[in-house]
Nucleic acid binder design. Structure first.
Length: 781
DNA sequence: CAGTGAGCGAGCTTCCGCTTGACTT
């Protein structure tokens, strides 16, 4: 009898399932979606109820062909794609392509790859849920409409014409970054003077230890000073001690988003790196599926965890927990991310090890007991005034899950008070304390920090925007489009004041701290800011943080059969199309123009705006008699924040440094950064040099050095044929015009002896057999 | 490779969400 064919999405999953199901089934994977909307005319028939036109993309034709031929030979085809909207649609597309009747074809689902789960799924097959499929089609079509209508609006209205894009997810992601930047720019730090006293007391062994207590905060220095004065000659007595038990509970096992956040905080990984390593672990069978929004663990995994915890730490450390997803948008087609076998504490692969151990610890901790704490608060009376000081401390009574894992938090979630808590020595009521010193320290409020890749993912997830499979690609997209940059920012030094009461004397000191330093954070570019403003002005609805949540609710109604998908799309498209047409007709070109003042030399207006090649400054106007002067903004400058002085500075380039070997040296900034030009040749200027201040004596050695290096690189030159024989980082190569040609290995040995005929032969040879490259696909890249 | 910055019109770009490879100029 012919075998049954069971189709899943992921090939790694196929292997495991085939082992579980045994002889009767052949398990194959379709590698995700097998059809997509055609690109021409959006792939949607706007005049016929938005009827979609699907095609099998080129890179999926091979797998579709294979599945077709297998389906023909098989006894019965079973569809086991993921149990979510996208998975349901994949099953339906498979029916369409393989010629199966969706009304009778067997469709099964499971959320975990375990023997009981799969065997019970096979016992109760259903058929494809067309309402759910239609909800997916609506999602797909709406995203296509938004992306393919909005992007062309940008092409028309932006002077920069390199492939700009807009979409339901990416445009809101950029908006989040843009708004945070503006909040930070507008932020005015407020300072307060916080009272902190250090006392000495005896610990259990009779040794002197120091602990601190906190007092009030004062808005002004004068208030803090007055308070300190009232404390002169004071005595300090403990008046009250409160001891309260407390507990901490472990976090849920990892989802894609929480894994990305913790790998960023604890290991400093970007989201793409995390996903790459997780993929490797998944493919080698070490962890469960890594693109998931579920926090639940399979029964098998729970049993495995119980026995591991009991044997490693004892029964006292075990606590069974079932986690619930807080996120309403979760589709929970898979389990949480966990090790497949808890007995593997680590993995061989060094790259993956740290991520694996993180997953292991988090999973382990999730089924361990609470940590038990004792929180102590002591009130301290000041004999000379009515204020009180408060000392708090925390003692860990039982470590519980903290034995293996503690979740990190982002800076913005940690309050000052928590930071201060430490241990307290044993104290008693009426106890007299010895004051070591009391300080009023000036503290400034801080703006919220800029987003990291991972904290942006967290924000997107909270808003229900994007899916586990798209978080990392979305960030790549907004970086690639130049809407956002990932970089560091140096902090600035600022003074703060401290008033100190010590040995019954008050003194004032000033200290310095660095503030505003950021590492590996997301900054909006001028392009990102300008495009966001434009989209918000004309497409407020799409840019709304709740847009996705609203349409998701409608997709749910489609999925439950309450509304027809075409009607839903129609309700969206009619007003949207009106906005698009109106914008194309009425909106001015996007420029972000800002007038900074008057150039003192020419007396003309200086403006900054977006130009064809990026942000720039301009002196004078287009229709002036004299042509306006232009200068490119530096990478670190922004249209929004640059001032007149800095903008004028930009016009000092190109600078003529004077003569060298008979011709002038000039320095400027070009398309590829700062450079020195001499004798019609160009030499890049390293980061350590400033083109605005570099002098002739510094510049000439650079020219001499780089010229020598270039000569060394050159083996031979044939002027007439425009052919050069050069030495590159990957060995010698031939350059003709702008194209490079690789020299075959066997001829690399004696390149010096190569003559023109032989070189031409190599060029012809390479032209005839071009090296294999990633085809520049119009599709995914 | 090292300049540019107006507008026209050719012909191009673009979305989100499922999946893995095969590229190294």
């Amino acid at each position: 009898m012919a075998k049954n064919l069971l189709i899943v999405e992921s090939p790694a999953k196929a292997k495991t399932i085939e082992r579980i199901l045994g002889e009767d089934f052949e398990v194959k994977s379709c590698y995700g979606h097998i059809r997509d909307l055609e690109r021409a005319d959006m792939g949607i028939d706007l005049n016929n109820k938005y009827k979609p036109r699907y095609i099998v993309p080129e890179d999926k034709q091979k797998v579709v062909k294979e599945l077709k031929s297998l389906a023909k030979k098989s006894g019965e085809v079973w569809l086991a794609t993921d149990e979510d909207r996208e998975g349901e649609a994949i099953s339906w597309h498979l029916c369409e392509v393989l010629g199966l009747d969706p009304k009778i074809t067997k469709r099964i689902v499971f959320h975990e790859i375990t023997k009981p789960a799969i065997e019970s799924a096979v016992k109760k097959p259903r058929t494809v849920d067309m309402n759910l499929v239609n909800a997916q089609q609506a999602r797909r079509i709406l995203d296509r409409i938004v992306g393919f209508e909005l992007s062309p609006v940008l092409w028309r209205k932006m002077s920069m014409k390199n492939n700009l894009s807009a979409g339901r997810v990416q445009s809101v992601a950029v908006r989040i970054i843009a708004e945070r930047e503006r909040e930070i720019n507008a932020f005015l730090p407020q300072s307060t003077f916080r009272i902190e006293a250090s006392f000495s007391s005896k610990d259990i062994s009779g040794k002197s230890v120091v602990f601190s207590a906190e007092g009030k905060k004062y808005a002004e220095e004068s208030g803090a000073e007055k308070f300190l004065q009232t404390c002169l000659n004071a005595k300090y007595t403990v008046t009250d001690i409160q001891v309260k038990p407390g507990k901490k509970s472990p976090a849920a096992p990892f989802t894609t988003s929480t894994l990305q956040q913790e790998a960023s905080r604890k290991l400093g990984y970007g989201v793409s790196r995390t996903m790459l390593l997780a993929q490797k672990l998944y493919e080698s069978g070490k962890i469960t599926y890594m693109r998931t929004d579920s926090v639940s663990l399979s029964e098998t995994a729970m049993e495995n965890l119980q026995s591991e915890i009991n044997s490693k730490f004892g029964n006292k450390y075990y606590q069974k927990r079932a986690f619930k997803n807080k996120n309403e948008n979760a589709q929970e087609a898979h389990e949480a991310i966990r090790p497949t076998y808890m007995e593997n504490m680590s993995v061989e692969d060094a790259d993956c090890r740290r991520l694996y151990e993180l997953i292991w610890k988090r999973t382990m901790a999730s089924q361990m007991s609470d940590a038990e704490l004792e929180k102590t608060t002591a009130l301290i009376q000041i004999s000379t005034n009515k204020e009180e000081l408060k000392a708090s401390g925390e003692v860990l009574k039982f470590d519980g899950f903290l034995k293996v894992y503690r979740e990190d938090r982002d800076d913005d979630d940690i309050s000052e008070e928590e930071n201060l808590e430490g241990m307290l020595p044993p104290l008693s009521v009426h106890q007299q304390l010895t004051l070591l010193e009391m300080r009023a320290t000036e503290r400034f409020s801080r703006p919220l920090p800029r987003y990291t890749e991972a904290s942006l993912v967290k924000k997107l997830e909270e808003l229900g925007i994007g899916r586990p499979s798209t978080y990392a690609p979305t960030i790549s997209t907004i970086l690639k489009r130049g809407y956002v940059e990932k970089r560091d920012k140096e902090g600035v030094i600022r003074n703060f004041r401290i008033l100190k009461l010590k040995e019954n004397k008050i003194s004032k000191i000033s200290e310095q701290e660095t503030t505003g330093a950021e590492k590996s954070k997301l900054f909006p570019t001028d392009l990102g800011l300008v495009v966001t403003d434009f989209l918000k002005q004309y497409f407020d609805d799409i840019m709304d943080y709740n847009f996705t949540a609203r349409i998701e609710a409608e997709f749910d109604e489609v999925a439950s059969g309450k509304i027809e998908w075409n009607n839903m799309i129609d309700d969206f498209y009619i007003p949207f199309k009106k906005d698009v047409d109106n914008t194309i007709e009425k909106a001015e070109r996007i420029s972000g123009e800002r007038e900074l003042g008057i150039d003192p030399v020419s007396g003309k207006k200086l403006i900054v705006r977006m130009g064809r090649y990026g942000p720039m400054a301009q002196i004078g106007e287009q229709n002036d008699e004299e042509k306006p002067r232009f200068a490119k903004l530096k990478n670190t400058q922004s249209i929004e924040t640059i001032n007149l002085e800095d903008a004028l500075e930009l016009f000092k380039l190109p600078r003529n440094l004077g003569p060298f070997e008979g011709s002038d040296l000039t320095v400027s900034i070009g398309r590829f950064g700062p450079y020195i030009a001499h004798d019609k040749k160009f030499y890049s200027l390293g980061k350590e040099f400033d083109p605005y201040t570099i002098g002739l004596d510094e510049a000439t050695p650079i020219v001499v050095e780089k010229r020598a290096a270039k000569e060394q690189r050159t083996i031979k030159v044939f002027e007439k044929e425009k052919i050069q024989l050069l030495r590159g980082p990957y060995g010698p190569y031939i350059k003709q015009g702008l194209r490079n040609y690789k020299i075959p290995k066997e001829k690399q040995e004696n390149v010096e002896t190569l003559e023109l005929p032989e070189i031409k032969a190599i060029i012809e040879e390479v032209k005839a057999n071009p090296p294999k490259r990633v085809p520049k696909k119009k599709k995914s890249s």
